[in-house]
């Protein structure tokens, strides 16, 4: 290759890279607009809102740190955080346990695996609203089919969603039923990636199936477990439509979730500044819990 062609070659590349940069800018313009309008603006405005009182009509009223002061002393806010954590503490381990059992069974050589997997996944694709409207009827204390079944064996009736003690666990069970199929699929993928030789070697050493599960399967799928924990915790913090439809946050605020409380302050009492402050605090709790989970999980790996 002589010097002349090398030179034109370089010039071509430079011309092309200018064109490439141009294309890069124009192809990412929609994202810039989207980001500015629907992420950056709300993010910045949330910092403005938390220092103001505002009923959406009329001007913003400077509130200083009053929203935060009110938050600290607001029993309902703390109640909603505790309720959400309570939901997560029941829902997440239940979800992981049920998903892990179903996925392990599915992973053994069993006929009609595809059918079972599809059946478990069915509630995942259905809207949460439809599921909740349906379960509201099944939960009915006097007429619901759960209590009909219990009556057959001489138990009940259980006040599933009308009792302070029962309501949140009932919602957690329903949410598990709705989502568990997704986690079965995730665990199944994890289980199938465990090298078969490990099990064969363990068989030769005379390991029991419990030992194999504890010492081979669990460490191998640990990353999936961490992912499932984080995903279902995030899901737990967005709990809204289930209590909204089932209980309205009752009885006696026992199912008032964080997001439901934000919604209530904003759209029943029109207190945008305070609602934004609750959202702010809620986001801080979410971030903290997820970070703790990550750190804990990383140490485990």
């Amino acid at each position: 290759m002589n010097a002349a062609t090398q030179k034109t070659g370089k010039m071509k590349v430079r011309g092309a890279s200018a064109r490439e940069a141009q294309a890069g800018f124009s192809l990412t313009t929609p994202y810039f607009i989207f980001f500015g309008l629907f992420v950056a603006y709300p993010l910045i405005f949330s910092f403005v809102l938390v220092f103001h009182h505002w009923s959406i009509v009329g001007p913003l009223e400077w509130a200083g740190l009053n929203n935060f002061k009110e938050l600290m002393g607001d029993g309902l806010f703390w109640r909603s955080i505790l309720n959400t954590l309570y939901f997560i503490i029941i829902h997440v381990p239940l979800q992981v346990a049920v998903a892990l059992v179903l996925a392990s069974v599915l992973n053994s050589k069993i006929p009609a695996r595809g059918f079972f997997r599809a059946a478990f996944f069915l509630p995942v694709v259905v809207s949460g609203v439809a599921v909740t409207v349906l379960w509201r009827q099944m939960f009915s204390t006097n007429l619901g089919i759960f209590n009909q079944v219990l009556q057959l064996v001489g138990l009940g009736p259980v006040p599933w969603i009308t009792d302070v003690g029962w309501a949140m666990p009932s919602i957690a069970v329903m949410a598990t039923w709705k989502n568990v199929g997704l986690y079965v699929v995730l665990f199944l993928a994890g289980l199938q990636s465990v090298p078969q030789q490990l099990y064969e070697a363990a068989d030769m050493d005379g390991a029991t199936s419990v030992q194999k599960f504890l010492y081979i399967t669990v460490p191998a799928i640990n990353p999936v477990v961490v992912m499932v924990l984080i995903l279902s915790t995030l899901n737990g913090f967005s709990l809204f439509i289930e209590p909204y439809v089932l209980t309205g946050g009752g009885p006696m605020n026992s199912t008032l979730s964080g997001v439901l409380y934000v919604y209530r302050q904003a759209f029943q009492f029109f207190r945008m500044g305070y609602a934004a402050t609750i959202g702010f605090a809620l986001a801080a709790v979410v971030m903290t819990v997820i970070l703790l989970q990550r750190r804990f999980a990383e140490r485990e790996v």
Partner: peptide
């Protein structure tokens, strides 16, 4: 977290 931007997005 979406909880952070929910209200300002409504605004």
């Amino acid at each position: 977290p979406f909880q952070l931007t929910l209200i300002p997005l409504y605004v």
